[in-house]
Nucleic acid binder design. Sequence first.
DNA 1: CGGGATCCCCCGCGATACTG
DNA 2: CAGTATCGCGGGGGATCCCG
Lengths: 133, 133
Amino acid sequence: MGTTTAERPSGFEQSGFDAFTALCPSRRLLDTIGDKWVSLAIVALGLRGPLRYSELASQIEGVSQKMLTQSLRKMERDGLLTRTVTPSVPVRTDYELTPLGQTLLPVLAHLKEWAEDHMAEVDEARTAYDSKV
Amino acid sequence: MGTTTAERPSGFEQSGFDAFTALCPSRRLLDTIGDKWVSLAIVALGLRGPLRYSELASQIEGVSQKMLTQSLRKMERDGLLTRTVTPSVPVRTDYELTPLGQTLLPVLAHLKEWAEDHMAEVDEARTAYDSKV
DNA sequence: CGGGATCCCCCGCGATACTG
DNA sequence: CAGTATCGCGGGGGATCCCG
């Protein structure tokens, strides 16, 4: 726990200030799930199990072919999902979350929880801020 | 393309995840804390209490003055922190997390926890992926 | 069907200079 | 000290074409 002041949420003191370097784990996680298509793909795969490329593309609205492929490759490289190519004609490719990738679902659920609990306050603050400027 | 109505398959609403529209709260939260300087500023203010502009600038290594100001303004607008200007000579400006902003600290702590628990696996997966390609 | 390769545009961001 | 204003570029990402 905090060595300085009480009332500080635990979890940040131990690692010191490596959160302020580019290579810190938290930073890299945010870089990953902060990617719009990455997080959407994780949620889609988490909800519906394995999906084909075209299924992902149709469910994640607005994603370009290039960005979807790019995001999926990055996730595969990071071990978050598996990519299974069936060399039929035409080709079939299935994507599925790995156990590691599945551990991100609760994390995203926490984000969702905060968002649903507090985003209305953000909107109010934003409206108030804009109205007086 | 813009904000066309999402034509996603039925069933997402039930699941609780509505992440496939651009305006969904979770999406907006990720847009906020996905911002490198925003999350770093929140952590810095959470750890060390109120800080002056120059203190934030020195603690968040590598941030440009423009981006720091821009991020802080956005956070103020969203009600995540307060900006207090003391019209002395020279001017003094203090930034402090609001109660709303403080509620983000546990969320970021969760992210940090996942990162510390699993980022090593990501690195292994990444190394394995790179070595066989 | 599931991409890879290419072109190109936009704007986010840094650097710099100036002000209250 | 804590910003604002302006310029310039680099690269992220969409659009398009093509291929196995």
